[in-house]
Amino acid sequence: MDRKEHLAVEKKKIAPDKCVVTGKGNWYFPPADIYEIPDSFVILLDMPGVPIKNITIDMQDNELVINGEVSLETYADEKVLYNEYNIGHYHRHFTVSDAINKEKVEAKMSNGVLRLTLPKAAHVKPRKIEVKAE
């Protein structure tokens, strides 16, 4: 992928599925990167404004469901002069295969980016096969 010189504005997308979680506010579809490193797969999700305690990650059968709720602070004594983006919660789900060790999924949150590490199951990990001399 070519490297862009400057960051471009991307409008937030509304989450395509009706979310299970009820409550006020919009639900957005957080942009994600997925990549593979030798031992695991990593998913990075942009969820700005979500405190760590408001993230729920569920593994239901083969579905990894991620919800992040922002605190919909009211601008109590503030007057909004202009508003270029909307604040809302985040929801996204992924289907994972048997190649993932579901017991050992790890999640870390830093600076509004959620990082999920999905370790590969033993049977798909790269194995070195020793060549024996006869």
Partner: peptide
């Protein structure tokens, strides 16, 4: 993302730059 080892991207939606 600075990853110690080489990574293989499967999906890329997040942008980077100045």
């Amino acid at each position: 993302t600075a990853e110690a080892s080489a990574v293989t991207y499967l999906r890329r939606e997040r942008d980077h730059g100045t």
